[in-house]
Design a protein around this nucleic acid. Structure first.
Length: 961
RNA sequence: GCCGGGAUGGUGUAAUCGGUAGCCACGCAAGACUUAAAAUUUUGUGGGCGCAAGCCCGUGCGGGUUCAAGUCCCGCUCCCGGCACCA
């Protein structure tokens, strides 16, 4: 019978002692030890710990404790992100003071956190609402302001009617709702406090490469920042409706011109019209100009008005038909060839991206092509080869393969729907499927890629002087130029008949290729597969070359870019999807923006000596859309007293993401009154070695705080350019029904209840055992947690199985377990580590265990079950904490097996197994096979052609039967 | 559409420099203990055939490479996450 495991009693007893002895106090840096800074996301003090908090904090504690026992000085702090709307909303609803509400919650939650039994360094704690904290938030803000990094900008902002405040782009979900309240976000035009995160877009993208983060997070940030490299090119305008407008020069005497942004300057010769976004300032100027420069002002005006009323979702629907209106009476001059091209306003061009104006190249852009077809605009192909750069990051998959075979060579090409629009036919015949249409087209005229046995020999491409001349192509007047080797030596061009005469052509659909795979003899099939693979590699790197581009004809598209930009006086540049971070909030419970306005309305930062710029308390914070701080008399009075009559305070507060952008720095030096954190303390601890957190922060907190750190770095206030070396994203704990926990679904698991039921150690181990910590979501399973409780009871009960001597197998298993834990825990593979502990207990319970081994086992279990192991440790007669002990080191001899069971395969099929030493020779292993009657009988009279023996793994015999 | 990550028993998962697929746990079934139930405990548990020894099949689907494939290669399907008329 196992010993009674009174988790409640054990937990409160040892928690009190740990607190009393301060064994988790971080104190000062001890340079004799290596350091590890482990960070978990500080919680919002909502008033109650939920199971997600447990998953977020209790499981990383295993890692922290393991590291500590391994002689590392660990910093594992905890604090509260305590500003924010819930406090204010609770205050409004129940007539409370947000500050009291927040501080009571923090006190209660700290108790709950202590009952978790984590090894937090409470001596380093901080919270964002403490004036000694937000003094520094404000100080950094004013320094950003002085550097021009914080500014009051005008623009269209996201207004959340639920929160009664502006929110940042990152806080708007893809469906257009608010990340906090779920309300549909409105667009409003108003002045806004912004941080210039766009200035750091390049560094935020480039520096990701060196971080030890999961690739999907890095990639999500890259996409969010959305850098695209290209060029800005000016197009001069020419007025035909009001020719006198051509004489109007700008302030510098410049002609009227429009700047477009393009990622494909190499296709400039193919730009056959220009498109402006409805929001483009030139459009409003043209509408309002006197005398009017447009021949169809009213039509344009109507279109623009309608377009602006459409919401983002409607405009973002790229499946709908393109709309637009020509700007009659003005044309643009293509700077490459001097041609006059028409101009349009259309809502498929976005005002907020690039320059809000594009050059349309319908031959090489799907959207431009769709628009050109609808408005009957010319399509000029300027890149030869089927390959469309727009899709350069991807490999084509769907579509049609063409396979050309000549002796041992295969010529294979693969086409997709995107190739249609410049193919001579340009579309499908009636009743034809896509595949049929492509096949038909490709039978007639095509580009070739020459592949042989997995090696790229060279490329060939379709070279036509008459890209729109579908008829000419149909009549087989195409000239194929063929490059025969990878050194790009151009062979004399072959005529089409030369090519066709020498090659046996097979045009295959995907289906047929698949069929081929089953019918071809293996050797040839292999060749085809290699060829297809090489083809894909080729497609990825081969951008095609220029045609119909004057002096640039024949140039590779990649190298043509800069040359064409140089010729037309453009500028190579990048644009970004990311917008500046809007941080002003029209609410009360936040950090006051430390800005005052002089009597003329100019903004000035509040000087350092007046920080913290305290949040006033005489405020009615009923949300009306008017910032509550505007109603504070004391704030007004304070401003007047310090700065003089006529000066007024800024009345907005900061987004709480600002508070959490630097909290990890304050932990390091939470008492410092002269700096946010001293550089010495930062050198001691930064960067953060592991940041454990949730997926929801990928493009918000994680991006903001990286930006903040870089901005501080440039100010010389921090020692590191990147805050987080490694990031581990955990998943979600779902309700027992597999759904996200929510009160309305009634599937919420209360951790306090669970702890009362089975104990803190059990809850923690259950959460760690469910599966890999990184990534997955797991439903709560009542049976599962009972299993962990049983395991701990049996671990405790091992005390009843103590013997004077133990079987060698037990000792060996113990050392194997040490080895397994030592490699699994650093990789955050807590589930397999626990599984190893279970295997050991299963064995030890059956076979008996010595007291020495039991002590070692207790230490192994200590990071996972800190309370129970402390109890076991003390019962074994120790007077100091087990958590001050060192983690056991595996004896490499004992951790190795003396004998292993390995499988024996005959002709690749498992037919039995043998027990041999892991270092047994092939002769020894063969002897073992022979002594196995079943295996021996199978080998009787057989001719062993080949023996494959891998020590400790497998024996495979190939025989003639 | 593009990018990133996945798919293994009834369930969560384990095993990837290719080497006995299913460790550990849950669940389930049968037995022991009990008046009974719970708890505990023993045994079994991928599917099929067989009294058994054993045999056949099996890691989303179709192929391939290899003595040997969950793992590598080619093609596909579905699921999760991110982005999306971003020029």
């Amino acid at each position: 019978m196992h010993k009674k495991f009174d988790s409640k009693e054990i937990e409160s007893k040892w928690q009190a002692l740990w607190r009393e002895e301060g064994i988790y106090t971080a104190g000062d840096r001890d340079s004799a030890k290596p350091k590890e800074y482990l960070l978990v996301e500080w919680p919002y003090p909502s008033g109650n710990l939920h199971i997600g908090h447990w998953y977020a904090f209790a499981v990383p504690d295993i890692y922290a404790r393991f590291k500590r026992m391994n002689g590392t000085q660990v910093l594992f702090p905890m604090g509260f992100d305590a500003f924010g709307l819930p406090a204010e909303n609770a205050a409004i609803k129940r007539g409370l003071d947000p500050k009291n509400w927040t501080y009571e919650n923090m006190a209660y939650m700290r108790e709950q956190l202590e009952r978790m039994g984590n090894s937090f360094a409470w001596d380093k704690t901080t919270n964002s609402t403490d004036p000694s904290y937000y003094k520094w938030t404000q100080s950094m803000f004013t320094q950003f302001f002085e550097k021009g990094l914080a500014y009051r900008g005008k623009g269209i902002v996201n207004w959340c009617p639920g929160c009664n405040t502006v929110i940042a782009n990152e806080q708007v979900l893809p469906d257009g709702t608010c990340e906090r309240s779920g309300n549909i976000v409105e667009k409003r035009e108003m002045p806004q406090w912004m941080l210039k995160i766009t200035d750091y877009a390049d560094r935020l993208t480039d520096d990701l490469d060196a971080l030890d983060w999961p690739e999907h997070i890095k990639e999500a940030q890259r996409q969010w920042i959305g850098r695209s490299q290209g060029a800005k090119i000016n197009f001069d305008l020419f007025f035909t409706h009001t020719p006198e407008a051509n004489n109007n020069r700008g302030p510098q005497g410049e002609k009227a011109a429009l700047t477009v942004f393009t990622t494909r300057p190499d296709t400039l010769f193919g730009a056959t019209y220009l498109v402006l976004a409805p929001e483009h300032p030139w459009v409003s100027l043209a509408i309002d100009s006197e005398p009017t420069v447009l021949a169809n002002t009213d039509e344009v005006k109507t279109y623009v008005t309608n377009a602006k009323q459409k919401d983002d979702i409607e405009r973002g629907d790229n499946t709908k038909e393109k709309t637009g209106v020509e700007l009659k009476g003005v044309v643009a001059i293509n700077p490459a060839n001097g041609e006059q091209i028409p101009m349009y306003v259309a809502d498929y061009v976005l005002g907020g991206y690039g320059t809000g104006a594009i050059m349309a190249v319908p031959a090489h852009d799907e959207r431009d092509h769709a628009f050109a077809v609808k408005f009957n605009l010319p399509v000029t192909q300027v890149i030869a080869g089927h390959y469309n750069k727009r899709h350069d990051t991807t490999r084509v998959r769907r579509g049609v393969y063409g396979l050309i075979q000549k002796n041992d060579r295969f010529l294979i090409q693969h086409f997709t729907r995107d190739d249609f629009y410049w193919l001579p036919g340009g579309g499908l015949d009636a009743g034809e499927t896509e595949t049929e249409g492509l096949t038909r087209e490709l039978h007639e005229e095509i580009a070739y890629i020459d592949i042989t046995i997995g090696r790229k020999l060279g490329t060939a491409y379709l070279d036509t002087r008459s890209p729109r001349g579908g008829d000419a192509l149909r009549n087989h007047s195409t000239v194929y130029s063929v490059t025969l080797d990878s050194d790009d030596q151009h062979e004399p061009a072959l005529t089409e008949s030369e090519v066709l005469d020498n090659i046996e052509m097979l045009w295959l659909t995907e289906e047929e290729i698949n069929k081929l795979q089953s019918n071809f003899e293996p050797e040839r099939l292999h060749l085809i597969q290699e060829a297809i693979r090489a083809l894909h590699g080729t497609l990825k790197t081969n951008g095609g070359s220029l045609v119909n581009s004057g002096e640039f004809d024949g140039l590779d598209s990649e190298e043509a870019m800069e040359k064409i930009v140089a010729k037309v006086g453009g500028e190579m540049t990048s644009t970004y999807r990311i917008r500046d971070w809007s941080i002003g909030r029209q609410r009360y419970w936040g950090v006051p923006i430390p800005i005052v306005y002089d009597p003329t309305g100019v903004a000035h930062p509040v000087p350092q000596e007046h920080l913290p710029w305290l949040l006033p308390e005489d405020v009615d914070f009923t949300p009306t859309g008017v910032p509550p701080l505007a109603k504070s008399e004391t704030l007004k009075k304070r401003t007047t007293e310090i700065f003089g009559e006529g000066w007024t305070p800024e009345v907005e507060t900061m987004d709480t993401f600002v508070d959490s952008s630097w909290y990890f720095l304050r932990y390091l030096d939470n008492q410092n009154e002269n700096a946010l954190a001293s550089l010495e303390k930062q050198k001691d601890w930064m960067p953060i070695d592991i940041y454990f957190g949730g997926a929801e922060h990928t493009t918000m907190h994680l991006l903001y705080s990286r930006f903040w750190q870089k901005a501080l770095f440039d100010l010389g206030l921090v020692t590191e350019n990147e805050p987080y070396k490694r990031r581990i994203n955990r998943g979600l704990i779902l309700g027992p029904d597999g759904n996200k926990m929510s009160k309305s679904k009634g599937n919420v698991i209360d951790p306090d209840e669970q702890v009362a039921l089975v104990g803190s150690d059990t809850v923690k181990m259950y959460l760690a055992f469910m599966g890999p910590y990184e990534g997955n979501n797991y439903p709560w399973d009542m049976g599962g947690i009972a299993g962990l409780r049983r395991f701990l009871e049996r671990s405790y009960g091992l005390a009843d199985h103590i013997t004077n001597t133990e079987q060698e197998a037990v000792t060996r298993q113990l050392h194997k377990t040490i080895k397994k834990l030592t490699s699994d825990i650093p990789e955050a593979k807590f589930n397999t580590a626990i599984s190893a502990l279970m295997i050991f207990v299963n064995l030890a319970e059956k076979e008996g265990i010595t007291r020495t081994s039991y002590e070692l086992f207790a230490k192994l279990l200590a990071p996972f079950a800190p309370h129970l192991t402390e109890e076991i440790w003390r019962e074994l007669g120790h007077t100091t904490s087990i958590h001050l002990e060192s983690f056991p080191v595996a004896d490499s001899d004992l951790a190795r097996d003396v004998a292993v069971v390995i499988g024996v395969q005959i002709n690749g099929k498992l037919r039995g197994d043998i027990t041999v030493s892991p270092t047994a020779s092939e002769t020894e292993a063969m002897a073992a096979v022979k002594s196995n009657p079943l295996l021996a009988s199978r080998l009787e009279g057989a001719d062993i052609k080949k023996t494959i023996y891998i020590q400790g793994k497998i024996m495979n015999l190939v025989i003639h039967e």
